[in-house]
Amino acid sequence: MDASEREQYRAAIHGDREAFEMIIRTHSRTLFAIAYGILQNREEAEDVVQDSLVKAWKMRWRVRDPEKFPAWLSMIARHRAHDVFRKRRSLPSTHETIETIEANTPEASAMDQQLHSALATLPALHRAALSLRYFEEMDYRSIENTLGLTNGALRGILGRAVASLRKQLRPALASTD
């Protein structure tokens, strides 16, 4: 993290609105990737990002160390997404309708469906890592930082995620070949 970035985080923590808006610009996509990874739903993910930003602004004074600001931001988003996810599970009917709607869209191919259901079986953390990788093309280190993982843990996580997806999609993959 360079000095200008740290300065920006510090200013945001101390209530500099412009600095915080700058952070929104630079980080909201990452947050979206995390939320989407967990929820697998764009609308919900957007709402989560929005809520997380508002919450972060209100609670910003809790962060003592400006360097930890991005990690803290993603943590808020992750918690928020988990909350939404849990709420959704307690209301299974809504989830059902969302799924059916998605399934009925014309462009959603059978392959897409399979991929989505395979993704749904993965742990939320794995999904979040995957979406960060594919949406933002972040390297392992940034993903680890964002998700608050220890050094080198991501390698195993992504390995397992890829393997799990591969095994589930093997019949479909074979057919495409």
Partner: peptide, 15 residues
């Protein structure tokens, strides 16, 4: 193959 598939599918979901 799967990577390609993922890239294609998830690209649609990008904000």
């Amino acid at each position: 193959t799967m990577n390609k598939l993922l890239e294609e599918t998830l690209a649609q979901q990008k904000p």
